[in-house]
């Protein structure tokens, strides 16, 4: 079972709650996904439309809230949002996002590390959103991050795991869980991340903007389960040759006659 900072999750699919047509649709999609962890953002109350209330929509006894710091452009803004989020949610869990570039929303590695160091000191359980940089992932782990969340491709692009090579290195090296976040546009992308050995994936846009978000949530649920199962079962390597490993054929082998017995 997936364990982050001592909390167990039977579902390895995290769902973002943005971009849904309504709170009701979001709630139904989250339920269909089987997810036990959803991300939420903090915003000023829109005084002209004060009744859109996500806290009421979801059953928090079953679903863990992971507040994010979306909108923060530097470490200081992220820390301020984190403190508000802690008071508002009653949880010290945090998805740390620091995105200074409004076009790509790519995360700032320097301020993400800076904010992580501070927030860990302040008692937060920090899950930083990062570019798929293995050394940054290790530095964040050393700074006390509870998991790392490398992106598959820039947020909202639906391009899938364009960073596969780097994500694989992160998975291989990290002591903390690796949650692939952003860019997952189809259930097959989610399955691929899970087959690679990711501990979980976070999906938002692909579910929220689907023709039928509730059915799409179910499709992602199945894909994540299948991908994890395949990873645990042990995948074979795709091979161009029919059977390169049989001793009679294949590569040139060195002469081992020097070995005595």
């Amino acid at each position: 079972m997936l364990t982050i900072a001592g909390t167990q999750f039977s579902s390895r699919l995290f769902v973002g709650t943005g971009k849904f047509a309504s709170s009701r649709e979001m709630k139904e999609a989250v339920e269909a996904s089987g997810s036990q962890m959803v991300t939420v953002a903090l915003r000023r109350v829109d005084l002209n439309n004060p009744h859109d209330d996500i806290m009421q929509a979801l059953d928090r006894t079953k679903i863990h809230f992971l507040p994010n710091t979306s909108g923060a452009r530097n470490a200081e803004e992220a820390i301020r949002l984190a403190k508000l989020a802690r008071v508002a949610s009653g949880t010290n869990w945090l998805k740390l996002e620091v995105t200074p570039d409004p076009r790509t929303l790519l995360p700032d590695p320097v301020d993400t590390l800076k904010a992580t160091e501070q927030l860990v000191k302040d008692g937060f359980i920090v899950l930083p959103y990062i570019n798929a940089d293995p050394i940054l992932a290790l530095r964040l782990q050393d700074a006390g991050a509870a998991a790392v969340m490398p992106l598959g491709s820039p947020i909202g692009t639906n391009q899938g795991i364009m960073t596969a090579m780097q994500v694989e290195i992160i998975i291989q090296q990290a002591r903390v869980p690796v949650v692939v976040d952003a860019g997952i546009g189809a259930p097959s992308h989610a399955a691929r991340a899970m087959e690679m050995g990711a501990d979980a994936v976070l999906v938002n846009t692909a579910i929220a903007v689907a023709g039928d978000p509730v059915r799409m949530a179910g499709a992602f649920r199945a894909a994540v389960e299948a991908g994890r199962e395949a990873y645990e079962a042990g995948l074979g390597k795709p091979s161009k040759q029919a059977s390169a490993s049989s001793p009679e054929e294949g590569m040139l082998t060195p002469d081992l006659d020097f070995i005595q017995d």
Binding site: T17, K19, V40, L42, R44, L47, A182
Partner: peptide, 10 residues
Amino acid sequence: VELIRFVGGG
């Protein structure tokens, strides 16, 4: 005064 609450987000 700032009044803040959770909204949907990824």
